[in-house]
Design a protein around this nucleic acid. Sequence first.
DNA 1: CAGGTTGATGTAACTAGTTACATGTGTCAA
DNA 2: TTGACACATGTAACTAGTTACATCAACCTG
Lengths: 338, 338
Amino acid sequence: MAGTQDKKRANLRDVAKAAEVSVATVSRVLNAPDAVSPKTRERVEAAIRTLRFVPSAAARAINSGRTRFVGALVPTLDNAIFARFLAALEKTLGAHQLSLVVATTETAPGVEATKAKGLIDIGAEGLIVTGVSHSAEFYALIERTMLPTISTSYYDAGNQMPTIGYDNAAAAQIALTHLAELGHRRITVIHGNARSNDRTQARLSGLRALDLGLELSCFETEISLRGGSAVVEDIYADSPRPDAILCLSDVVALGVLFGLQGRGIAVPDDVSLMGIDDLPSSAVAVPALTTVHLPVTRMGERAAEALARWVAHQEVPGSERLPASLVKRDSTAKRVAR
Amino acid sequence: MAGTQDKKRANLRDVAKAAEVSVATVSRVLNAPDAVSPKTRERVEAAIRTLRFVPSAAARAINSGRTRFVGALVPTLDNAIFARFLAALEKTLGAHQLSLVVATTETAPGVEATKAKGLIDIGAEGLIVTGVSHSAEFYALIERTMLPTISTSYYDAGNQMPTIGYDNAAAAQIALTHLAELGHRRITVIHGNARSNDRTQARLSGLRALDLGLELSCFETEISLRGGSAVVEDIYADSPRPDAILCLSDVVALGVLFGLQGRGIAVPDDVSLMGIDDLPSSAVAVPALTTVHLPVTRMGERAAEALARWVAHQEVPGSERLPASLVKRDSTAKRVAR
DNA sequence: CAGGTTGATGTAACTAGTTACATGTGTCAA
DNA sequence: TTGACACATGTAACTAGTTACATCAACCTG
């Protein structure tokens, strides 16, 4: 049965003794089997099997200086956008023989530095973080350890660490412009907490910077289906009613869609609805959600590539801006006089 | 700037030399600061700062024998059910000072053993896997390395490794019984690929084992919103039409709901619809989906607890069965003669 | 003032691998 | 027969920490 050791784990020396060879030979059997004669190799392999020898990752790491894993800090796993990003990260890192340690920050400001410290303590060779605003402790930690760290989900060429992401302000503007072009004037914007979230902040200031003569009103809610569904009541408690609802993330938009359906409000006939993110659910919803596609899979791949090269060859990557684009589907329509 | 080393990383000896103390003293400053006199400590801390010394995780691990992380192998991150499970795992492991390395198996049979090997190679102290059917290579690997490993999502007391999960057959039966009690006779079952998925297999055999005089027909589709949405066409190409549709997972059920909405088929008036999982989206959908609650958050917590105790105190856990329960919502209703 | 205790620090031997270099053997050509 | 070379293997010194034990000074007690 697993977990029940006879004594303690066998090491290289034990194997060498059992096979009556030197430690170097055992090491060679492990790393360069061709350099060992077949009969010696067989003898060593037999000893490895009988002693249930498993090489120590720590001992290997101490010599190579490489632990072969990096860490990712994301706000949550409950939003599919991060799950998709991590899936792409994990896959691409795997191609570079790197594993991924996942840590969630739960949007609480203090925990990011703590979790980052934890990742460094266990030997992460690099870090992927979300956004560009972090605590002073976090920056001090990265500065002190000089750990390769890439910011994602936020493109900002002037940032002190490389950023691989999209222009959040521009993404929000794409959405708002689309709604304006459809003739909508009174637009309700639904967003998550902006204080703890620089992406939300950037999107909101993108909207404010755009002068299209629109009448914007903002509502804050939890970034979740439930949050989107619940905020509908607030929107319609308010008057006048909006021509269109713009959610700064797709989960919320889908929640709003459900909330509207529950009240018998038709999309897009009574109100246009759109999100930002382009989750798989958005394409399948009825009506299919118009949204702004954020290339999170691409972002995961690019961030993984860049970090892999950084930790392996000390090539510090530059920032990279990934394009966001309008995905016109069925939840937005031209405004008709009502 | 991070990543640009002057020479190479300073080590304990370098710090000791710079602070004119012994290596033991530096080690004490790191691990038991109170055992060092304030003025010596300060001198050492100054040296640590100027040399930008960061202790090597590998060297620490080689002594303690602990790497402080475990691995989790899940089929995918794209299904919220696994994302939620991992979130709970990560959180609870964190309370035990353990980090989580995530690897996805993409349901391909060969990759599980390969990824498990990778996790062991980098030093994972334990493993969390999904389901109880694994390749021979995988079992051989676990057997050989004696790595603490817990199976989840599938309760089976007779399994060779501890299982922490629910009774999949019983969960499916809860769903089918509910539909039967509502008077539905012709029931369409939607499931994912059963060959590569023992949970699906168990659920299907649970359904077959239940003799309620029902007329079951099965459709296989991809486990995703898209898969659920797409299969609706197949269901209604077939005649006769079903009284109820039972999806063996909630993502698929939500997809089917969208598919039905797209065809103008009313739930639950024209057809009852239910799923298994109880995702957050199911409670918010319109109509809210009747489903069978699977306690994945609880499962993550229990699995993390058990694995943490196993790796820290060699306490091999027993299997644990978590209860699945019916969540009656609005997508199922009594059958009326049509 | 001897003897015991406490506190701070150092020495060196551990942990478990990798690897540069040395050594020994066998084959082949001159 | 000897030198050259390849191939297999061993020795010991690395990697970077932790820690048992030794040492030494300062203080307190009888």
